[in-house]
Design a protein around this nucleic acid. Structure first.
Lengths: 340, 340
DNA sequence: AAAAACAGGTTAAACGTTTAAATAAAAAAC
DNA sequence: GTTTTTTATTTAAACGTTTAACCTGTTTTT
């Protein structure tokens, strides 16, 4: 049987209230009793029952973590790392994380995760783009919500976001610094705020260096940002017959697809075309050449979200704070100075 | 504020006990009150507080799910799918799953997951191979444990396992049926029970067809079953100078690595060499040729584990039951009849 | 020296369930 | 028409915490 506060109290020769007081170091407790209690706690290996605690405090101690099925099952552990960051950060608090997925197509009849329906969480973290229907449903719930790597098109929310604009700027600037001017941008789903922001960064860099923006160099038709679509995007560029010496892909998956397409056409990377990605996924395959990319601190995204959640629940923060997590350019061998 | 049983009782004009009784349909309750109560429950959208329930029932309603970090972060969502199966199955019960990882190197000082230390789970599911130290620690805890896809070298446990022997048999048999006799087996970490079992299946098939086992055709030196090691294993075979017309790789990752090595040496698959894998991972890359493999129902593994856990917790099962989940041969284009 | 303030601790109620035991009403047995 | 049995429901205790309110003894203030 689990040790209870009663046994600790008995062993220390004090009341249960005193034990509780010591454990939460509220009010003044003499050094002497404090030590006695702590000793008893240690010796009995006492851990307060979260359940009993939750009952009186009217909180569950659980945080929900939701993402769509396809995000969770993506082969790069992008969201997995974000989750792990969150889980890691809970070790400094007393929360537990309940992970569950929702269907990528979230219809009206689709049930919400059980812990939401049963009101068994104190807050909800939503990672990645989720269906609007889902956002609407959870918004009406009077539940602290934090979005990671996605910001819904309407409404005001707390969110931990990647500094996509700056990332786009860094990537493009890097290419410009290497002498490139004909820089293509390939991105899937432009509806996705993140992609759009990366494009904005791209445009900002061009403007900063006085390079004329050329819409022909931008491919954003594809539905998703997959490897295949990276491959296809290059095909589209080729068909358009537009000239380019560098590519900024909106993520690594597309960058890798693009590289494959280039290789197939015997275009040398980075000799003839430089390629920059975004995300810094560690693939299990060694890419040739190693990809220059904008590294996203996935783990940190999760950590920041959990920290923010904690602050939100402790009410020592005003609602709807946004955090921009910085990114970093990682130069590898897929980019090189423009050949004269 | 959350609706409590009191409010339901009041609305239905009965005592809280009656409400509880109706909800758990214990004892006889008249049809009339039953209806009244259910109506009130529905109208108020009442959901019992797990916390209060847990307090009196002395259970947490949580199941821990542990795996090593590198398993969770593997690029194929193998364990992710197992977890999802578990999570999915909890929807039929009233449990929640708490996912956490442990370091792949689990030293003595390493803390156990917080929910274990705090005794905040009713049972523990362990997926994949975990350090022995960890097994020892949790074994001494008097906690229901179920292993998935791993069985510790010593001790007696409940487990949900892949039918590896049969899978190895199927794969090898398939190759033999195609006329192959010089079949190589490449597997990493032979310490791993699963790998060893697949090898046993391989041997069984050979024996069944009266083919002499040749130790030179077996490569098991590598530490892990990665793509790189699949590549390397083929190099080893080549160096040995042993002839082979087919390869049974202990998993898809190694099979894919092996195929890459063969391609690089201009050996045609399946014309010159047939390749069979194991696991049936859906890679984001379209492999050429599509891999013949032994499909493992990952989702089912998770489901079975959760079902078993439920039975275990309800005590309507004797301890240490083992479940073997069946596998299936999926024939694609990486295997072909032996060319005369 | 009495009153006030304070330090250190305890008592007891509350949180929302479940369920054994008690009770009340109805039905069955005598 | 009692008594007994059965059925349907309620009462109340228990689960393990937290914390406001209270108490007691000591120190400080007046």
């Amino acid at each position: 049987m689990k040790i209870t506060i009663k046994e600790v109290a008995e062993k220390a020769g004090v009341s249960t209230a005193t034990v509780s007081l010591v454990l939460h170091n509220k009010r003044r407790i003499s050094e002497e009793t404090r030590k006695k209690v702590l000793k008893a706690v240690r010796e009995l290996n006492y851990h307060p029952s979260r359940v009993a605690r939750g009952l009186v405090l009217k909180q569950t101690g659980n945080i929900g973590f939701v993402l769509t099925e396809d995000h969770f099952l993506r082969s790069e552990p992008f969201y997995t790392k974000i989750f792990l960051g969150t889980e890691f950060e809970t070790r400094n608090s007393n929360y537990f994380v309940l992970l569950s997925t929702i269907p990528t197509e979230f219809s009206d009849e689709e049930p919400l995760p059980r812990y939401i329906v049963q009101q068994n969480i104190d807050g909800l973290i939503v990672a990645g783009k989720v269906p609007l229907k889902f956002v609407e449903k959870i918004s009406s719930l009077n539940l602290p919500i934090i979005f990671i790597d996605y910001y819904p098109p309407k409404g005001d929310y707390s969110a931990v976001l990647i500094d996509n604009i700056h990332g786009g700027l860094l990537a493009t600037q890097h290419l410009i610094d290497l002498g490139h001017e004909k820089i293509a941008f390939i991105g899937g789903d432009i509806e996705h705020p993140s992609i759009n922001e990366r494009l904005i960064g791209y445009k900002m860099a061009l403007e900063k260096y006085g390079i004329q923006f050329n819409a022909d160099l931008v491919v954003t038709g594809e539905k998703s940002t997959s490897k295949e679509n990276g491959f296809n995007a290059i095909c589209v560029l080729m068909e358009r017959g537009v000239e380019f010496t560098a590519i900024f892909a909106c993520n690594d998956a597309m960058a890798i697809g693009a590289m494959e397409c280039l290789k197939k056409r015997d275009i040398k990377i980075p000799k003839q075309v430089s390629v920059v990605g975004f995300d810094d996924i560690e693939s299990d395959i060694f890419h040739d050449p190693p990809l220059t990319t904008v590294a996203v601190p996935k783990f940190d995204l999760g950590i920041e979200a959990m920290k923010l959640m904690r602050d939100l629940l402790n009410k020592n923060i005003r609602k709807n704070k946004k955090i921009l997590v910085p990114v970093e350019l990682v130069v590898r061998q897929s980019t090189a100075r423009l050949q004269a």
